[in-house]
Design a protein around this nucleic acid. Structure first.
Lengths: 310, 310
DNA sequence: CCGTAGGCTAAGCAAGACTTATGGTCGCCG
DNA sequence: CGGCGACCATAAGTCTTGCTTAGCCTACGG
């Protein structure tokens, strides 16, 4: 009969609370977007579970009983507190955005631009993870990610940012030596090649060579693309990398294209986040911002993109 | 996505609250008497409705997110407050019992005994209504009633108290005159008859007279049985009434049976209350008490009851 | 290395919630 | 004073929601 420690049906409590607040089943029904019959049913339900009347039924109106008034007061408070807590929690959640990104993309392209986002949306604190592992976006640790792929992630919303293109980049001092080194993938090494062998293979294929470069053409293998690029800047070899991600190095003249051919693996960098969270304000804001920045980068590197071949 | 002013599903909030409190979906499920799958479903539900994660999912355990913690705290408070309010409301409700009763029964039999109930259960404040109207027991104004009838009230629990019997009662001084007056219902009046004509008719029928007393045998018609009895005590006529209800008058000698025949209409006085409230403590206590008192009265009046004829 | 614990997912099911329809009562208004 | 509208109660039928079962996966621990 009476609630030992179990709560009666919460749906009933909600109906009762609304009815108590507005003093009418019909109005309560309107507020809850349901029918008077439903409210009547729920109130009766609650009365049965409690074993006590909550309303005096008069012909045209209802009136709280003493006990009903006690519950009504507490229920109003409780629901108001709950409602407020949701709003507050959403605010808390919306105040910080955790993003996991590929190291190359994050380090070379994204990080330098972040100041712009901070200036535009100071209320959103960013946390960027460049660990490189494909972190789970559903376990609550990250809000969004930047990944490389074909744009097919089930359950995810994906925004295309930059195409995945690559070309040989080297220090201006190595430019002429590089031309010789790139003449034939099978020729003896003159200047070491840096970066992902698969990209090199694809790049040579884009130039018509069926075979990739032999193993002995490679220099030290480094863990990350941007480390290869740093080595190239230092004149230690020819790196293969994206002219979009490393535009700063090209613009400043620290690197130059070692050859005009641009390769692509037909993939792209995407900004992705769970489809369930597509209405989150912070995700909308960040997504809009990064898409704008990517558009600028695509425009600036349009010449490279146009020449890209798979 | 986000709760504008609508609350997300309360079932989900409850599941979430339990999970947050105990820190485990499985344990929460046990507490709620459901399964881990259900808890998981509800938490996910809530996360979708809010558009934000509430738990970090680790392999073997879950951990509240920042936002989740905010909600968890408020939800715990809210539920605790609700729970407390129900207990309090039940206490309030249980502390007062409103009873509506027939005037004769209430005034003559019940009221003098109430002191005993008050002494036994001082925590329950009684309110007795003797208006005589058959008040609705479902509109929350009354907890229980005492009615006369056959014990068939749909939706009600009914406890039989006293059989509805009646016999002529008069002042000792009128006893001999009364004998003459009752000899034949059609004889000219010598002493006026008081009380319900239908009872008089039934009573004469119980004695073998097919016709009831003629109209001119009646004295002033009074509104209530106990007023007729009071008139009889004052020597103004012969009243027809229950020797059980007016035992005090008989015991004290203020009234005596004017004839030994006892009539009955095969009805009884019942203590009734809504079946939905059968577990209410105050109703159980009062019901037990009044049943005991009625049993005593039946024992004391067993001689009358045995002789009753319809 | 396997057993156990904890959580996730899918699919089917059942109880509860809701709707529609109807009836009754009261109060208002012509 | 009778018709109408507002309001609540009730019944029956439908459908959503929440729950269960079953199976999978991962991490931890003996």
């Amino acid at each position: 009969m009476v609630a030992e420690d179990k709560l009666p049906s919460l749906s009933s409590i909600r109906a009762f609370e609304a009815a108590a607040r507005v003093g009418s089943f019909a109005q309560a029904a309107a507020e809850l977007g349901t029918t008077a019959a439903s409210v009547s049913y729920h109130v009766r339900q609650l009365e049965q579970q409690l074993g006590m009347p909550l309303f005096h039924r008069h012909a045209q109106r209802v009136e709280l009983t003493q006990g009903g008034a006690v519950i009504a007061r507490e229920a109003m408070n409780a629901f108001a507190a709950l409602r407020a807590s949701f709003v507050r929690a959403v605010e808390v959640d919306e105040s910080r955005l955790a993003l996991t990104t590929l190291p190359s993309f994050g380090t070379s392209w994204l990080t330098p631009l972040l100041g712009g986002f901070r200036a535009k949306h100071p209320a959103i604190a960013l946390r960027i993870d460049v660990s490189g592992d494909a972190e789970d976006l559903n376990d609550g640790r990250f809000d969004a990610a930047i990944r490389n792929g074909l744009g097919r992630w089930p359950g995810m919303r994906a925004v295309k940012l930059l195409p995945s293109i690559f070309m040989p980049l080297c220090s201006p001092k190595l430019k002429s030596a590089a031309a010789a080194a790139l003449a034939n993938p099978r020729k003896a090494p003159e200047v070491p090649l840096l970066g992902r062998p698969d990209w090199w293979t694809m790049w040579f294929r884009a130039r018509g060579f069926s075979a990739g470069p032999s193993r002995d053409k490679f220099g030290t293998s480094l863990a990350h693309e941007y480390l290869d690029i740093a080595a190239a800047v230092a004149g230690q070899g020819i790196a293969i990398g994206s002219p979009l991600l490393f535009r700063a190095e090209l613009d400043s003249g620290r690197l130059v294209p070692a050859h005009d051919t641009v390769g692509t693996d037909d993939r792209a960098f995407w900004f992705i986040y769970p489809a369930a969270r597509q209405h989150s304000r912070k995700l909308k804001l960040f997504g809009q911002w990064i898409e704008d920045e990517a558009a600028k980068a695509r425009a600036a590197g349009a010449g490279f993109i146009r020449r890209a071949r798979g």
